[in-house]
């Protein structure tokens, strides 16, 4: 939801380790991050914070999963990627390598996908590897009303 950005972030994991010098906290082992309707699951999460304000969260998994309910009337947005970077200030999610995002039945896959949470704009590009082009699948109209 729009309000997700200012909800508190709760993180659970098997293990956590704080490194004040670098200002990072590393969580490992079935890490789950929740913020409002946003839910991220990954194997390893690194939280970067400055002056104890969280600036960037990097989640790594095979793949890491991201889920959010952007608007009450819309369907869930499901995304995944080997690396998910959540830039809180820019309110943007970057999905890198084996990136995939699904919303209202439409699925986009590719090398890099950028998802602007506020503007709800998804940008995807094949990056340097031409073979790995961006793919998008839109269901037929009759099937869409079905689910």
């Amino acid at each position: 939801l729009q309000s997700d950005a200012n909800q508190p972030i709760k993180i659970e994991s098997d293990k956590a380790e704080r490194n004040d010098k670098k200002g990072t906290t590393v969580y490992e082992g079935s890490v789950v991050i929740r913020q409002g309707t946003i839910k991220i699951r990954a194997d390893k999460v690194i939280v970067y914070s400055e002056r104890n304000k969280v600036d960037r969260i990097v989640c790594i998994g095979k793949p890491a999963h991201y889920q959010q309910q952007p608007k009450p009337e819309d369907g869930l947005v499901l995304a995944s990627g080997d690396t998910i970077e959540y830039h809180l200030a820019a309110d943007r999610i970057d999905l890198l390598k084996n990136a995939s995002l699904e919303q209202n039945g439409t699925t986009i896959t590719g090398e890099k996908i950028h998802y602007d949470l506020k503007a709800e704009v998804v940008k995807a590009s094949s990056g340097d590897n031409p073979k790995q082009r961006i793919q998008m699948v839109i269901p037929p109209s009759n099937q869409k009303e079905g689910n």
């Binding site: 986009i108 082009r133 793919q135 998008m136 839109i138 109209s141």
Partner: peptide, 26 residues
């Protein structure tokens, strides 16, 4: 076509809120 999903591949894709996707490149 009326009964099949539309599959599209391109170099870059940009999807706006009103479900309008701009695809560039091959």
């Amino acid at each position: 076509p009326a009964d099949a999903p539309l599959r599209v591949a391109s170099e870059t894709t940009e999807v706006e809120q009103e479900n309008v996707a701009h695809l560039r490149g091959k």
